[in-house]
């Protein structure tokens, strides 16, 4: 049995989500190869070759793969699947974009956002925004799986897999990349941060998110938000934590002015420690928080920042 893992990267560096997907693949058993599809990917391939448990790294370098366009990725992955029994990718937006195309072309039912791997054909996945967990067994000859990476530990680095270039047979595409508007930030990436501080509708405005910045700076935290705060236009969409946004599982998650709607909890309840600040003592967020502070956030946040300072954080 052979499993193909698709790397998460930005053409310059390999992302941790790849290591976590390798861990999920290892639970299926068999040989693991990593596909790096992109443009100018030598460094990424070298990094992937170091992941423990990887047999080989395949690199496909092509202009249309710089942004991993859905149609181009479909062609590359489907073209490789003769040699594999399963293909796994992280469940980030990049891969969610083309994995269903791969599954359809292989005539396979995709198994999305798995949080557990029981065997080579049996997986656990959240349904209904994480309010239920389904254990499903695939009867398809090949498995197409996306992985909720927060549910898996990262594979180590000490391996020395072989790395080789593979040709891309990408013809004319019906789509093209136009532009990208990426949020610039010196803070850690939301899904990889050790600490996350998120604001909700209770923040009242985008301006008030400044109250979280000083705390985020002190803690080296990434900043996130609830769907309500994003929908209200306080912060950009890519800050959204929840079932329809990003899933995070940091060491510490601080929820400020977030009531704790089911769909938000689905995206953060795997955090190791959860702290919540909310003025409504009946807010559902307190039912999952390890430490709850019932207080007006406009008073509590400056105090919290000052106390962090005092504690030498």
């Amino acid at each position: 049995m052979a499993v193909l893992v698709i790397a998460e990267h930005d053409n310059a560096s390999l992302k941790d989500a790849t290591h976590k997907t390798v861990t999920a693949a290892a639970k299926m058993g068999g040989d693991i190869d990593v596909l790096v599809a992109g443009k100018g990917i030598k460094d990424v391939m070298a990094a992937a070759a170091k992941i423990d448990g990887v047999r080989a790294v395949l690199g496909v370098d092509h202009d249309s793969l710089e942004r991993q366009l859905a149609e181009a990725m479909e062609v590359v992955v489907v073209g490789l699947m003769d040699g594999y029994d399963a293909v796994l990718s992280p469940d980030t937006t990049t891969h969610k974009n083309y994995m269903p195309r791969v599954a359809a072309k292989l005539d396979v039912q995709q198994i999305s956002s798995v949080t557990g791997v029981e065997s080579a054909d049996t997986f656990v996945r959240p349904i209904y925004a994480g309010n239920a967990m389904a254990t499903v067994q695939s009867t398809d000859a090949k498995k197409v799986v996306t992985v909720r990476t927060t549910a898996f530990a990262a594979a180590g680095e000490g391996g020395s897999a072989s790395a080789s270039d593979s040709a891309a047979n990408i013809g004319d595409l019906k789509s093209e990349f136009v532009s990208e508007e990426l949020t610039k930030s010196d803070r850690p990436e939301l899904t990889a941060a050790k600490t996350v501080i998120s604001g909700g509708r209770g923040m009242g405005s985008g301006e008030n998110f400044k109250l979280l910045e000083g705390i985020a700076d002190k803690l080296g935290a990434a900043m996130g938000a609830s769907r309500a705060a994003v929908d209200a236009g306080f912060v950009p969409n890519d800050w959204q934590v929840g079932q329809t946004g990003k899933s995070v599982a940091p060491e510490l998650y601080i929820a400020v002015g977030i009531s704790g709607a089911i769909q938000h909890l689905a995206g953060m309840k795997d955090s190791k420690v959860i702290a919540a600040i909310n003025k409504d003592e009946d807010a559902p967020i307190f039912s999952v928080a390890d430490y709850g502070l019932v207080a007006d956030l406009f008073k509590a946040l400056p105090e919290f920042e000052a106390e962090l300072e005092k504690a030498g954080v």
Partner: peptide, 20 residues
């Protein structure tokens, strides 16, 4: 299909100092 692992509610703290 099963219920997800439940997370126990923790404790309430008095103020920001206690939280830190």
């Amino acid at each position: 299909v099963t219920e997800p692992a439940a997370r126990e509610a923790g404790i309430k703290v008095e103020d920001a100092a206690a939280l830190v």
